[in-house]
Design a protein around this nucleic acid. Structure first.
Lengths: 111, 111
DNA sequence: TTTATGCATCAATATTTATTGATCTATTCG
DNA sequence: CGAATAGATCAATAAATATTGATGCATAAA
């Protein structure tokens, strides 16, 4: 399981980077994120919008949540999910690190 | 299989986005990319550097190549692999699109 | 033209991930 | 309280991925 903050790169944290990318490596999960980024939303609303079964969505929501991509919040009997902005920032860092050579990383003193 | 250019976002191309993220969703493949970004490199050198079997590396190199993440070039009996800069740009676009709301996309006229 | 090398590909297997329907839990409302 | 609802979790199965060793195909050297 991940621990924030995870400022860093794929060299130092390949397993964590893989987990984050894995969470994004599924069309259903990307569609969930596309819904959530419009604003937080409960599962029953997602089942309507994405025409997907409840247990299927719960499964994918769990993958996203375990990877830290989304946050959840209970309100009565509803669970509201939302995109985790920290994870998006982490993703930016990871993608940047894919572009940096060792030399560049040494230069910036990062990792 | 992907087709460049794939300027766009996860909303329009969730399957392609998933393919690209999937290619990155494995620690071995990330380590391969970390090597390749220092410069192009043949398989036999990767087996040394990553202490991994040849067929295993060939498998992962194929995943990366099919996703468009890397390019290959034959020279004599060696295959040289390198990072595909276009794919890194595409990845940037995808990550950006994860952050954009529909409203924002409409505003920029992108997709 | 034989032999060796680099690497792709295959076959078998193991492991992981995804889907479906069923069940369980928590919460709310009568 | 009991009934209804939202959603997590489980069990069974299916499907996709990964690993290993073997085989095959080019290229190159002898």
């Amino acid at each position: 399981m991940y621990v924030f903050p995870m400022k860093g790169n794929t060299v130092r944290h390949p397993a964590r980077a893989a987990e984050l990318f894995h969470a994004l490596a599924d069309a259903t999960r990307l569609e969930i994120l596309d819904e959530l980024k419009e604003g937080e939303c409960c599962v029953c609303e997602l089942t309507d919008r994405l025409q997907a079964g409840q247990s299927r969505l719960s499964f994918h929501l769990k993958v996203l949540k375990d990877a830290g991509m989304i946050l959840d919040r209970r309100e009565g009997r509803w669970m509201y999910y939302s995109v985790n902005a920290d994870a998006l920032a982490e993703l930016d860092d990871l993608v940047d690190s894919l572009k940096q050579t060792k030399r560049a990383r040494r230069a910036t003193g990062c990792c």
